[in-house]
Design a protein around this nucleic acid. Structure first.
Lengths: 202, 202
DNA sequence: TTGAGTACATTCACTAGTGAGTATACAATG
DNA sequence: CATTGTATACTCACTAGTGAATGTACTCAA
């Protein structure tokens, strides 16, 4: 399961992880296109050639970066949802509230998956796109399950999509306007949609 | 008002326009970062040096490109809104429906303003960002006016933002999933928000 | 226990290509 | 003949990716 590490030097951090970690830091802070592998190498304290020993291309590193963020991201959403007291609508809104707080950080740069998508539109078949798509789908599916559990089985899929639509819209808009309050406005809309769906269930 | 054109050769299309037009075509189809000024020059049938005679930098061309799209874009939205029969909610949804149709085109590449924003995150002070921001604001303001006219004065601003949030979310999501149906789902949510706002007005 | 062998890991120095922006010369127009 | 505009032919910086050599750690035979 860990073919890149010799058992006898188990204490050392695998180089692959060091590279992905360094790349992630730069990608998050600067962007993907604007980060050269020379920069990643410098950040990781390695040579570019070493990077190319562990990865076949920059694209492969981008994919590894997103993949590493997939589950943790979803877990964060789940945590925020669970940690919010109140109705189903309140819990959904809780996700947006927590995001609004995160967005206040000056270094906040939106959703890594979304940004990657836009940075890579020119190559529709890019593996990273697939990972981003899968991630969004995972979040959507999880939301649908929660909505179903909350008594909205019939409209759970549509509603989950609409919440995600609001989420992604907020990511973009907050980035454009540098104003986290849009995140709260989006949360309000999401909560309203949930509330009205529950109310109209007769 | 047209300092770059000599009166005596008034029949000739001003070179500035030729350049912006060529750039726009390439930016729309390929992206901003991925279009070099060599490509723009080739498309315009000019030399790069000529471009630099009329513009000081690539950034200036990007800004001119967005600026040229500002009003026409808004006009299109207005047209779609007006052309849709039905209630206020229906008209709002109409915008999304028309966009869904446009998004079916294989060469559709989302909202130019939004894409530009993401492509330029690294330079927060970029003039093009300001133009994009202003454009979104213009659309939002127009929507708020329509909502107010439709009897939703109190919540028009919040609602207009939420509609825009859904719109931008749909732009991103459709681009990611290459599935225009998300645009319709977003339209449904927008229409619902409007409907419920009208219903709860007692 | 030691020393040669070997597979993995890393480095230095490089190629080939691209892109923004420019120095300078040339053409047309009034 | 001077102003405006266009073209040729560059510079300079940077980037993805590579060739070939070097280093390191563990293995196994003697």
């Amino acid at each position: 399961m860990q073919p890149n590490k010799r058992p006898t030097q188990a204490n050392k951090r695998p180089t692959r992880d060091v590279i992905v970690h360094a790349a992630a830091k730069l990608f998050r802070g600067i962007g993907i296109r604007d980060v050269s592998l020379d920069m990643v190498a410098a950040e990781a304290g390695l040579t570019k050639r070493t990077i190319y020993y562990h990865f076949r291309s920059k694209d492969e590193i981008i994919a590894a970066y997103l993949e590493a963020r997939d589950m943790p991201n979803l877990e964060t959403f789940k945590q925020w949802f669970d940690a919010t007291e109140g109705t189903l609508a309140d819990k959904v809104e809780g996700i947006f509230r927590h995001l609004a707080v995160a967005a206040h950080h000056p270094k906040w740069k939106g959703c890594g998956f979304l940004r990657t998508t836009v940075e890579l539109v020119k190559t529709p078949g890019h593996p990273a796109m697939e990972i981003a798509r899968a991630h969004k789908k995972r979040v959507e599916d999880w939301l649908a399950v929660e909505l179903t559990a909350g008594g909205l089985a019939a409209e759970s899929e549509t509603l989950a999509r609409q919440i995600l639509l609001l989420l992604d819209g907020a990511f973009s808009t907050v980035l454009l306007n540098r104003d986290p309050s849009y995140m709260e406005t989006a949360g309000l809309a999401a909560a309203n949609l949930v509330r009205h769906a529950l109310a109209s269930r007769a």
